[in-house]
Design a protein around this nucleic acid. Structure first.
Lengths: 156, 156
DNA sequence: GCTAGTATCTCGCCGAGCGAGATACTTGGT
DNA sequence: ACCAAGTATCTCGCTCGGCGAGATACTAGC
């Protein structure tokens, strides 16, 4: 099935771009993934904590701490004790992180918007519908084996 | 643009599946990528060599050697001296590697074929056209900065 | 207050990947 | 034929991301 290979190729290409971007900015792929997660959480209004981040990236606590040390050292995030529950640490993304996110997704979005120009709105709807279905299929399958992945709205 | 987020989500999901599969089979993400590359090369009839593999995965020669040691130890590939040019090593994938590839892509393909059932052929064509365009856009952009692997000309 | 539970951090270790250099072979000039 | 330059792969020593185990700081129930 040609779409399988195509999807895989797209995945590889996106990955590659991510890795290149990360290397160019002196951070690791994990750091970039963390950044994306944090920006997503920020946009969604959820407040991010080390444990949630660690769960999302499949890191244990030690690794998560090290990751946050790195990000904090680079001035991308800040740790602040939650005054309600002083065991917890809340993570806030700094301006610099937002800008970094922009500089990564900006060109990508520009490209994709440009590409979208070649397609009729109805066609883009089809693509959207297809990708949504694929995503659900893939997610439902791997969710079966995954226990505590934070931030999964479905499965009531 | 919703398609951007959707594509990223699909990428993440595919990645995640890959990582899980790799972990379950006692290999690393790099090993899985290598396997995919080798199986692709095998199917395409190109003969794989360490340098090409290393270039594809963005590893330097030392890393590539270590990777091949791992794969060979697991009985997934075999190294053989090229009798035409005895500096070269040609890599052949073992039966076990094929089976592993099947067990990874099999379910994925099944899922995707099933998903495709909900769409008309014309709609799948649209999706195919869209993904191809996206791939080209992404690839052309990152190709610009990519040079040969074992020789980094830029950044003085 | 004492004990159990939770969130995060510290310590020591493993192993993937890197840079530099070694080794084995080919190729072109003389 | 021989030797210098080039190419493909491997070896060695090192760095650093991530892991397991345990320490620390706090909250909640009795």
């Amino acid at each position: 099935m040609r779409l399988v290979h195509l999807l895989r190729a797209v995945t590889v290409e996106f990955d590659l771009r991510g890795a290149e971007f990360a290397a160019r900015n002196g951070l690791h792929t994990t750091d970039l993934r963390a950044l994306i997660h944090l920006l997503d959480a920020d946009r969604a209004g959820t407040d991010a904590t080390p444990s949630r981040l660690g769960a999302a990236l499949r890191l244990n606590s030690a690794g998560t701490t090290a990751l946050l040390d790195r990000l904090e050292r680079q001035g991308l995030v800040r740790r602040r004790r939650d005054e309600m529950d002083r065991r917890r640490v809340v993570l806030t993304v700094e301006q610099k992180a937002m800008e970094l996110g922009q500089s990564f997704f900006g060109p990508l979005i520009t490209d994709l918007v440009e590409v979208a120009g070649d397609f009729a709105p109805a066609e883009l709807d089809v693509v959207h519908r297809y990708l949504t279905t694929v995503l659900q299929a893939a997610a439902s399958d791997s969710d079966a084996s995954t226990a505590t992945t934070t931030g999964k709205p479905p499965t009531p």
